[in-house]
Design a protein around this nucleic acid. Structure first.
Lengths: 249, 249
DNA sequence: CGAGCGATTGATTTCTTTCAATATCGGTGG
DNA sequence: CCACCGATATTGAAAGAAATCAATCGCTCG
């Protein structure tokens, strides 16, 4: 059903590609770099043509050439288990890096595919490593980004044991915060992924996700239909599933 | 109950501390470095006095000074949630690094505590970053280690949805492989952590862990009492929980 | 306009947790 | 050396949350 075999995006180094002008610079690798160093980073970055929905950026097993920074749109990454089951590991929003699980590897361990029309910047890993040797700020930032990713995965573990209700609430709040960082509304956004994707990511079934959306709507925690979400009561959403929450008061 | 307030281990740079002679070098940071570069790495490494069981190496909130490499023994790291619940994020065996979730941070996010008498090497993060700028092989290795950690956390996600039975089986097999890498028996080892720790780490209750150990023993998958484990049938343990497994045949 | 996938809703089953009661281990002090 | 204590581990019975199985709905795209 799923075509994982189509070839990757063509890459071109475009003259007008500039981290200087990019609104995401403060969230992305250039963070903390001075003008000169940003210039050096720009020098190795390539931009691909837009990926359309369901188009693959990376296929597991591909030889590792680049890490990617999302410029616009949204992607998901997933692992394909030996038994054939997918496990979504990340949703990537603009400024976030893709391929951090492949540094030092020969081949990418996971797939990355566009959830909607998306643009990415491609950064050759060898040149990035080289540049990280020369620019302390870039080195620091790269290590920090990797470290943060590890920490976030650890935090995911903390959630994993909690109820499906709490996990979904936390997921929505996490998305809200990330959209907010990117200058979008924290209260109103469109989910780029399906119910099935959310369930897969959070470790629950599509049916459970669907029921929880319904419940959250009934409780007036959220509004919106389909992929549209309005967060109506962030405070209560934070506490969702608490025994001290809706049940007692 | 838990004392998280005692001060950290004293550090000393010991003349006889040598990565050259360390049997763990091929698993640890020195991997792939030549003699000269190993010497440079050694130059910044300090060794602490032994930590005794339940002694803290790191407390969340401490200012980040070092990452640590386990030299002997075993430690666990855990996050303390806002609601007061611990979540164990890692068990650390010899050669493994502690504090990778703190790079680029002011303060450690997690606690690390010895599960048994342990020795660690302390590596000042600033000097490590500096050295990673100068030694491409070290930079590569550091990035690779971080990247692998991310990948392993992603793989954990794949397991998270599986049955408790499978998760515990996978956990035992993972430990087995890690002991084997370190020159110990893959079939017979002593768990350094409690049932409670295992349950916490895997996202299940102590009772469930205990029941599963009993079941595995009944199925002749493992033997041994208490913290002792003998793996009797690795093949079957790999498939544990499969519908194509014990139930049908 | 029909086909098909994604989403929703319902009924039932199953696995794991929770609550509760021992049992056992390791260490301490008499 | 042995008895006792707390912590850890085991075992059982009951309850609960989410999965599974199943049916329907609705939207999007040829």
């Amino acid at each position: 059903m799923i075509d994982r075999s189509s070839s990757g995006p063509e890459l071109s180094r475009l003259a007008h590609l500039s981290c200087h002008d990019c609104s995401l610079a403060r969230l992305c690798l250039p963070l903390c770099l001075d003008e000169t160093d940003i210039g050096r980073l720009e020098g190795i970055i390539k931009r691909s043509r837009p990926l359309h929905k369901n188009e693959y950026l990376i296929r597991a097993g591909d030889s590792v050439q680049h890490v990617y920074a999302v410029r616009s749109g949204a992607l998901k990454s997933y692992l394909l288990n030996p038994d054939g089951a997918d496990q979504i590991t990340c949703f990537h929003l603009p400024s976030e890096l893709i391929g951090l699980d492949a540094l030092g590897e020969e081949r990418y361990p996971s797939y990355s595919v566009a959830l909607e029309t998306s643009m990415v910047c491609a950064i050759p890993v060898h040149q990035l490593e080289e540049l990280a040797g020369q620019i302390p700020g870039l080195r620091k930032q790269l290590l920090h980004t990797l470290s943060r990713e590890i920490h976030e995965e650890h935090e995911y573990r903390s959630h994993a044991r909690e109820s499906a209700e709490r996990r979904l609430a936390a997921f929505l709040l996490n998305l809200s915060a990330r959209y907010s960082q990117r200058g979008l509304s924290p209260l109103q956004f469109v989910l780029p992924m399906s119910r099935g994707d959310i369930g897969n990511y959070l470790g629950m079934t599509t049916e459970t996700v669907s029921r929880l959306f319904t419940r959250f709507r009934e409780l007036k925690l959220i509004a919106g239909s389909g992929h549209e979400v309005h967060l109506l009561d962030i405070q209560r959403l934070c506490r969702q599933g608490d025994t001290s929450g809706a049940k007692q008061f």
